[in-house]
Amino acid sequence: MTEEIIIAGFGGQGVLSMGKILAYSGIMQDQEVSWFPAYGPEMRGGTANVTVIVSDDRISSPTLTAYDTAVILNQQSMDKFESTVKPGGVLIYDPNGISKHPTRKDINIYTIEGAKLAAEMGNTKIFNMVVLGGYLKVKPIVKLENVIKGLKKSLHERYHKLIPLNEDAITMGMKHVVLK
């Protein structure tokens, strides 16, 4: 199994940390992982993206031009990455703030109302965990218990009290991801 993912959105949406938690979850189940962020001038204009690869085998290139899954959280990222999903692949996006919806017919497109659901849960910061839940429902590449272990590893101990909230957010995302 090899899953090649691009996660892209605004800086501050938790794009990089969502990728980090996913990568840590892979480590928790003995998989190989890589996490490569766009850094420096690429991030000017407030966009952030990260390539995450989770695999049973040694990972070759950490940078890619085509992905099994794209998780897209703003319009700029939609413009840039819709075309990079492999045929038969998956595109998951939050329709909030998207004006031009994806049009490809050769991929599976899902929506997750991450921002809305996080607001309903009373904490907009868990937005990225709702989206992660939606992704894991569609692509269950890591077990939930390993995600929780991954969260513990990537969060400082003083934030461990927030893990149940994060778990709820993931579960919420799993329930509300919709095939378009």
């Binding site: 980090k20 990568a23 190989e32 890589s34 996490w35 490569f36 850094y39 990972i59 950490p62």
Partner: peptide
């Protein structure tokens, strides 16, 4: 280089 320096792996 910046790729290996900035990327995370196990």
């Amino acid at each position: 280089d910046g790729l290996i320096g900035q990327m995370m792996e196990k």
